[in-house]
Design a binder for these strands. Structure first.
Lengths: 144, 144
DNA sequence: ACAGTTACTTGATTGCCTCAAGCATCATGG
DNA sequence: CCATGATGCTTGAGGCAATCAAGTAACTGT
């Protein structure tokens, strides 16, 4: 296990709350992945394959090199969780398709990644809306 | 860059907001670390060394194997960011101390990791309190 | 058809991470 | 006091993630 997390020197109370939340989220994600024999990267890729995608597309979404995706897909393929089909329209490119096995495994994974659902369950409907609104507002220009 | 992130199939609005927030946070952390020539793991370890700590202690906090910490510390040490002193009370154990160089680098890193501060700056004082409260309440039993 | 671009793969290298062993040091009970 | 066991850390081996540099195949445009 790893998922190192953020700054320990959180100056304000809100900063510390954000850090704790993110840390818990990340750890829960990794635990759920590990429980299903997936790495974080593998779980993430698998999750994006609700419909077929090309390698380039995946690499862009993940913000990483294409060769990295090649490796991750190769490992998923060796476990029969995805398949690589050559795109007939453009024979350079591959369509990556999640297999039935992959669908099932990912569904299991998501079911066991209860963090977000559990977090929400702790809040009233009103509070859920409030939280979503505040998080979005906080994100506002915080991206850069 | 990587930091793969969470489920794409976020069922509720609040879930998606949480996911987006965590994802942005993680990416910002990694970008800030990279900018200072640090890996995420290294930045995290460096951040915990506001006062000296033993290897065991660090491994427990990070939730990883002690041998992993050995390696990370070795890399930080080779860049003169930390030092390993043998604890006189227990000569098996090492006290890891951040050097002055390490202090400066980490301060720089934290300054450039503006995410949390920027996020907070988007909110009024009241909203900050609300957000902190909601996050903590959401975390309530969500840990498992 | 030739040049340039795009999609992907391969190979090499580094870092993170884990497990299994091993060494040195403390702590305990006889 | 010394044998046994626990503890703190390191080493070695191996797997996965990630990057960069090169290379191949296939599309695009002139």
């Amino acid at each position: 296990m790893a998922v190192p997390s953020g700054p320990v020197t959180a100056s304000t109370d809100a900063e510390r709350a954000m850090f704790d939340f993110v840390d818990s989220y990340d750890r829960a994600y990794e635990i759920a992945a590990t429980k299903h024999g997936l790495s974080v990267a593998q779980a993430c890729v698998l999750g994006r394959l609700t419909d077929p995608r090309g390698m380039r597309e995946l690499a862009d979404e993940l913000g990483c090199d294409a060769s990295n995706v090649t490796q991750i897909i190769a490992r998923l393929e060796s476990r029969d969780l995805v398949q690589r089909h050559t795109n007939p329209n453009d024979r350079r490119s591959r369509q990556i398709v999640r297999t039935l096995t992959g669908d099932v495994l990912y569904a299991d994974f998501e079911a066991s990644f209860a963090f977000a659902r559990a977090a929400i369950a702790n809040l009233s409907t009103e509070e859920q809306d409030q939280l979503a609104t505040l998080l979005r507002k906080a994100l506002g220009t915080a991206d850069g």
